[in-house]
Computed example of a mutant assay.
Amino acid sequence: MEFKAERLIRLREQLGINKAEAARKLNMSAMGYGRYENGQREPSFQTVCYIASTFNTTSDYLYGLTDDPSPSTITISSSEDPEIFSFVNSMQKDKDLEKRLLAYFKKITQSENKQKKEKQ
């Protein structure tokens, strides 16, 4: 597998951040990050996974195995978002609660979609 530097650049640009900001988000030096974007150095698989997680994409996208940058999983950190973490944790523990909340979510999104269509 070969890392696709142009996809890293595309993701960074879509996030609206410069190289220095991307390096800070990834806890690496700007020079090291720049080498990944310039294709001078290929990141390890672990680093690619970390980049994918941080930039909300997949390692498959960064390796060119898929053209879909959408992640198939989401990691929720209790330290970064304690309310969402607690919410998801509660749903995992109580399947009845999960069913009720998902039904409510579906009603809300259906209502929002209907309103959007009516506005068009």
Rank of each mutant, 00 (worst) to 15 (best):
A52V: 02
K114N: 11
E21Q: 11
T75S: 14
F85W: 14
P82W: 06
N38M: 09
S77G: 04
K114S: 15
E112R: 11
V48F: 00
E83V: 14
C49G: 09
E98N: 07
K99A: 09
L101R: 04
E13W: 04
F105W: 10
P82E: 04
K119A: 10
M1S: 13
I51K: 01
A22K: 01
V88L: 09
A22E: 00
P43W: 00
M28A: 08
E80G: 05
E2T: 15
I84V: 12
N27C: 10
F87H: 05
N113F: 06
G16N: 10
F45C: 07
P69R: 01
T109Y: 03
D96N: 13
Q40A: 08
L65G: 06
F55K: 03
Q40T: 10
T73L: 09
V48H: 01
Q92L: 12
Q40F: 08
E80D: 14
K4W: 02
D67S: 10
R10G: 01
G32F: 01
K114A: 12
Q110S: 15
E37A: 05
N89A: 11
P69C: 05
E112A: 15
N113Q: 13
T47D: 02
Q92K: 09
E80S: 13
D96E: 14
A5Q: 07
S79E: 12
Q14N: 14
D96C: 02
P71R: 08
E6C: 09
S72Y: 10
S90C: 10
T75W: 04
T73K: 09
R24V: 12
